[in-house]
Amino acid sequence: MLGEREQAVLALERRSWPGPGAKERAVREQLGLSATRYYQLLNALLDDPRALAHDPVTVNRLRRVRAEREQRR
């Protein structure tokens, strides 16, 4: 089972954001994390089978985005 912080990270990723900076502000205010730390946690979650079981739609979408970015490099 995922912890509360991990679940909160995935919940933020499920949301759509109105403009630049809104997501980073929410990360700071709701989770108390820097953007860098947030993305480190998020990337680790994408490789965690518990995250996939908890929210397969979000995790699979983010895995596709990550793979596309890696291919472009």
Rank of each mutant, 00 (worst) to 15 (best):
S34C: 10
P49D: 00
R50F: 04
N60E: 12
D47W: 09
G19A: 07
M1H: 13
L52R: 05
Q30S: 12
V57Y: 13
N43P: 05
T58W: 03
R72Y: 06
A67G: 04
K23H: 14
V65R: 15
R72M: 11
T58F: 06
P18Q: 11
P20W: 14
Y38Q: 05
R66Y: 01
Q7W: 10
V57F: 10
R73I: 10
R64G: 07
R14P: 04
S34L: 12
R37D: 11
R73N: 09
E24Q: 15
P49L: 03
E70H: 11
L52Q: 04
E68Q: 15
R66L: 04
L52N: 04
E70Q: 14
D47R: 12
E6I: 07
A67K: 08
R28A: 15
D48F: 01
H54Y: 13
Y38H: 06
L42C: 09
Y39M: 08
R25L: 14
E4R: 14
A35T: 14
H54S: 06
E68G: 08
P56S: 01
E13I: 06
V9R: 00
A67F: 09
V27D: 02
N43C: 10
V59E: 02
V65A: 12
Y39A: 03
D55E: 05
G19H: 08
A22G: 11
R66G: 00
E29I: 11
V9F: 01
R72K: 08
A53W: 05
E29R: 13
N60F: 08
P56V: 04
R61C: 06
L33W: 07
R25K: 14
R66I: 05
L45G: 00
R64Y: 08
G3Y: 06
W17G: 03
G32V: 10
R28Y: 15
R63G: 03
